[in-house]
Amino acid sequence: MTRILSALSLSATLLASTAMAEDLPAPTGDVLLTIRGDISITNAGDAARFDLAMLEAMNPVTITTTTIWTEGEQTFRGVPLAALMEAVGARGDTISATAVNDYAVEIPREDWVADGPIVAFEHNGAEMSLRDKGPLWVIYPFDAKTDYQTEVIYSRSIWQLDRMTVED
């Protein structure tokens, strides 16, 4: 049942993404994320920029999990990475994600799957300030499976995210 529902929701997400891909609006608020590189859909030259409203419109999901950087269970809300890549028409196989503090990491295409990581903009129901590792934080569903409890995955869980480049 849950699988059917998730499958349905996934298709719905894909449909929505496709609809948006054709028409990626320009951001009106503060730009939280800029995506460049090998993408087909942009809204600012060769880049696709996103403000909070745009992300909120991309059917965000909620993940409840523990992390090694926090105490106790945490709730994160954000756009699945797969949906985000769909929205920008990503053609490459790797995302190079960079934080405000210039921390950079690569996330391969195999991670952009359904029930995979999300680009969270809400932590425990509140927007995240820079001080609280905001404004965006890539969160994997760590508790869902042990494959997500490795140092590689922890290193890909980049916080204070603000840029992405899709590469080959």
């Binding site: 950087w69 820079l130 590792k133 204070q160």
Partner: peptide, 15 residues
Amino acid sequence: DIFYSRMSTLENGVS
């Protein structure tokens, strides 16, 4: 803010 965030991580992280 970045430094603050880093310290918070040190103070609150399970690790």
